[in-house]
């Protein structure tokens, strides 16, 4: 089985989910399911003016790519796109998107969840809180719930 197309980008700029989806489906008549998950920056009950995301250039792309390849080994996918932003991101703005395509919905749903669970615990990104006064606050703590979510895919 040949590996389906994988597109991974790490960028400061916002992304357009509809345009990214169109790139994956244009001209194809074999895709029956598209799942797109977008993660947004929250204001945390009005406490934050932004999140500042640090990343490890080079490794971030490589780790997301490895995760996408693993998803393609596990599910019959027709394509994977994963885009993760870095830099200053304000509440309501997108941080990450994963898009999976397949002939049927189950593979697309499961693979998208797997990708997000793995990105959260394995892709080298770190969030720092920025308060309403613009002052840099604390680093966001890793959540045990995220580790548990990733662990459920172990095999």
């Amino acid at each position: 089985m040949t590996t389906p197309p994988i597109a991974v980008r790490v960028q400061a700029e916002p992304f357009d989910v509809a345009a990214e989806t169109e790139k994956m489906t244009a001209g194809r008549t074999d895709i029956g399911a598209v799942v797109a998950f977008t993660g947004l920056c929250r204001a945390e009950a009005g406490r934050l003016s932004a999140l500042e995301l640090e990343h490890y250039p080079g490794m971030a792309e490589a780790e997301i790519e490895r995760t996408a390849r693993e998803a393609c080994d596990r599910w019959p996918l027709m394509g994977v796109t994963a885009i993760h932003r870095f830099g200053v991101i304000r509440p309501g703005e997108p941080i990450v998107v994963v898009i999976t395509t397949s002939s049927h919905r189950v593979a697309a749903f499961e693979a998208a969840e797997f990708l997000m669970d793995f990105l959260k615990t394995r892709a080298p990104f770190w969030k720092k809180e920025v308060g309403l006064d613009g002052a840099k606050g604390d680093w966001v703590d890793a959540r045990e719930a995220d580790d548990a979510a990733a662990a459920k895919w172990a095999r």
Binding site: K127, W139, D141
Partner: peptide, 10 residues
């Protein structure tokens, strides 16, 4: 070699 805290992306 890179050293860092647990990741908090996504």
């Amino acid at each position: 070699i890179a050293l860092f805290p647990p990741m908090t992306g996504g």
